[in-house]
Design a protein around this nucleic acid. Sequence first.
DNA 1: AAAACATATTGACAATTTTCGATTTAACGC
DNA 2: GCGTTAAATCGAAAATTGTCAATATGTTTT
Lengths: 104, 104
Amino acid sequence: MKSHYADHAKVFKAFCDENRLKIIEMLQAGEKCACVLLENLKIGQPTLSHHMKILCESGIVAGRKEGKWTYYSISTEGVEAAHNLLTKLTTVTLTESVGETVCG
Amino acid sequence: MKSHYADHAKVFKAFCDENRLKIIEMLQAGEKCACVLLENLKIGQPTLSHHMKILCESGIVAGRKEGKWTYYSISTEGVEAAHNLLTKLTTVTLTESVGETVCG
DNA sequence: AAAACATATTGACAATTTTCGATTTAACGC
DNA sequence: GCGTTAAATCGAAAATTGTCAATATGTTTT
């Protein structure tokens, strides 16, 4: 049985870099070709490729190849999964009364 | 007018480190003293302090000082804010028909 | 088949983040 | 006040991540 901390982290890493946030922001307006994204960012092509890989692995973004080009868009399923994971990670199962917790 | 990418990233950084995920997981069972968290992690005290700072700054975790001790718990408001931010960042505003996007 | 173009991969370096040891601050008990 | 304990801060080392230049892969066009 494997620890899945890394898998969980992967999802939220999508939102932890300024350029990735800019990319996601652009994708909110609809599907975009990699070349269009590149035009609107101050990074090189290999760096964009690196970020797109991280975004796709997070599940938040989906890629679609069409001939020479690759089109990216926000994945509704991925976003939903992220919401569910966020809930799973942050739901408090027990609430003890204040002061119940003892220390030392 | 300031760029808010850093602020947005701050929220999700809470979930991007294995030790922070372990801490959040422990807090799901209820409020915990820092010393208790420390006992259950393979990191030193200054490192825990560093992670707790990041978690508190994300809004996901809240700290409460009581004498010598500091108690941490998951912040319902912070979690809700994270959900809202996630929605804000990922909602697609327009959906053009497939193939509408032109390249080059 | 060759040239041109879009994207991915590789390897090296820069920037950031995590970690620790040492020290500091603050609260408690004697 | 003095010693003890809990947590924060500081400074430096280690690990990870972001970036770019060069190259490779795959597709289209001529």
